[in-house]
Design a protein around this nucleic acid. Sequence first.
DNA 1: TTTTCACTTTAGAATAATTATAAACTAAAA
DNA 2: TTTTAGTTTATAATTATTCTAAAGTGAAAA
Lengths: 135, 135
Amino acid sequence: MKKIDILKKLRSSSLRPTKQRVEIAKFLFEREKTFHFTVESLNKLLIKKSTSKIALATIYNTVHAFKAAGHLNEVEVRGNKTYFDTNVSNHHHFYDSETSELIDIDANDVVIQKIPKAPNGKKIKNVEVFINLKN
Amino acid sequence: MKKIDILKKLRSSSLRPTKQRVEIAKFLFEREKTFHFTVESLNKLLIKKSTSKIALATIYNTVHAFKAAGHLNEVEVRGNKTYFDTNVSNHHHFYDSETSELIDIDANDVVIQKIPKAPNGKKIKNVEVFINLKN
DNA sequence: TTTTCACTTTAGAATAATTATAAACTAAAA
DNA sequence: TTTTAGTTTATAATTATTCTAAAGTGAAAA
Ligand SMILES: [Mn+2]
Ligand SMILES: [Mn+2]
Ligand SMILES: [Zn+2]
Ligand SMILES: [Zn+2]
């Protein structure tokens, strides 16, 4: 992913490309593989990576703007912290509760044969499959 | 479910059958259908139902003991509050984000045809399917 | 260029859910 | 009865998150 794409992500999230936001965006989106994180873990990684530290509030604000723009997804994980996912396509997850680690599963690698009808007046928005792991 | 079963649930959770605990246990387990709740919602319902109010800490402690004993399950729901489920069998959920309501799906009503292998050294503990609803 | 002005960053305060604490209470056992 | 282990409760502490308000930034108007 090129710098121009980072700027696109920021613009499409109604965010001016400030130093802090570009740093966050590059950290999140300039990578080959999907990245799952909490605000806390992201903050720690940004502190290690970069010289200047970014205020927590800025990280929260930026992550939420990316989420609102559809550049990040929120994933439900047991526990109190909110997890985010740079993979915004329809997909599923392994969850390793030992390490609190999420691993992507391609949507095509799960085939559901039978599913109940949505209740009265409701429609199905999407189906999420979680595969919990043990050792 | 009879009183004797309530006492069994308490005993098997290493809980003495105090007035408060029996009241919580009866409220949770003496019902036909599955009950999904947060500690906050349970507290409100108990206040309405009963004359004496039970301290929040007691509700937290009791619910956690039931969970540890396997009489309650924790369900992952978007948001900050923890959801519990009186249905501890293997099953799935519809989730209506409009109303924050969970609806049980019997395990037999979902058939998965294809699933990826667990990663290196790990095994599959269980598979949870969430069907998100819209109007 | 200087000024303006909308947008940003940030430290710290506020909030909300949960957990810990410690004193008063209860009930089973001795 | 007395003892003892366990329990309830109000309140404090903790943790994740959101809010606030003051100081900073930079593009564009004057
Ligand atoms: Mn969660
Ligand atoms: Mn949750
Ligand atoms: Zn993912
Ligand atoms: Zn359920």
